[in-house]
Amino acid sequence: MELVPYLILGLLEGLVTAAVLSLMALGLSLVFGVMRVVNVAHGEFFMVGAVLAWQIASLFEGHPAWGFLAALLVAPPLTACIAVAANQLVLKRIEYDPERTIVATIGLLYIIQQVTLMTYGPDARPVEAPFNQRLSIPLVEWTERGLSLYWPWGLGTTTYKLAVIMAAVMLLTGIWMLMTRTRFGLLMRATQLDRETAQAFGIPVGRVYAAVFGLGAALAALAGVLIVPIQQAHYLMGHDPLLLSFIVVIIGGLGSLPGTIVAALLIGISDGMISVFFSPTLAKIIATLGVAFVLIFMPQGLFGKRGL
């Protein structure tokens, strides 16, 4: 394939990856930023979202859009409930100690995976997209008869993939509004800046933590629901997105919403682009080392203000 269509395809795929990644990473970033803990089980919330989406969608007959819509509305709050329960039962009691939280969330990860394996099983199951039309993308070329359109072989995307990108943009805008325009956002930012002072000013830090942990999980679950018509729900699917979103959060700079989004775009698109020029596994190696070197030379991340 010629270079231009190839790059366009890489870009489109990169945008889909970035869309899902930014939602998930934002959830991790909120938890990380406000509560200062690494939630190793974050990827499992993504998985739970996808698995619940399959469960919910399979209850519906008829047009796939109904099942998907129901999943979109029900799966994230359900996942948030699980997260809040985990917060109340475990994280709160270990006082959000960074090291103990890592062990506790690894334990949580095992528990969630095993329960999913026992109930949902080891299969990768698809959820039908509400709509999925293939769109061929035309390019312009200069011929003897002047400008004309042509349709390069294989260059195309699907309506659903475009919808995922749109949905992510809308959701991210919504979160940004929540953070900057509402009382809850204010409480959250205050807690993030200085926990002790926030407490002194009468902010119910405990409840803010619970809400943030739930919101983070809900965002991961939402990403899971959005991806499941493209990929399949599988009980081990949370692993790689966890690593990627972790990277995104650090590269973007802790607690920076724009940073997180820029980093998600960077990681998603570079992944698609580098594979144009190198053999796929070599491309992954280069991208991975690239992330390491960004941090080595910019330890605060791209948008970070201070180290943690």
């Binding site: 650090i250 190696i285 080392l289 390491a292 941090l295 080595i296 605060q300």
Partner: peptide
């Protein structure tokens, strides 16, 4: 030599990335 330029969470990620590159290699 490379990763000690960072600290805290960035150190975690840098070491993670080097190991991932090693795995892929």
């Amino acid at each position: 030599i490379l990763s000690l330029r960072t600290a805290g969470v960035a150190f975690m990620i840098v070491t993670l990335m080097f190991a991932q590159a090693g795995y892929l290699a």
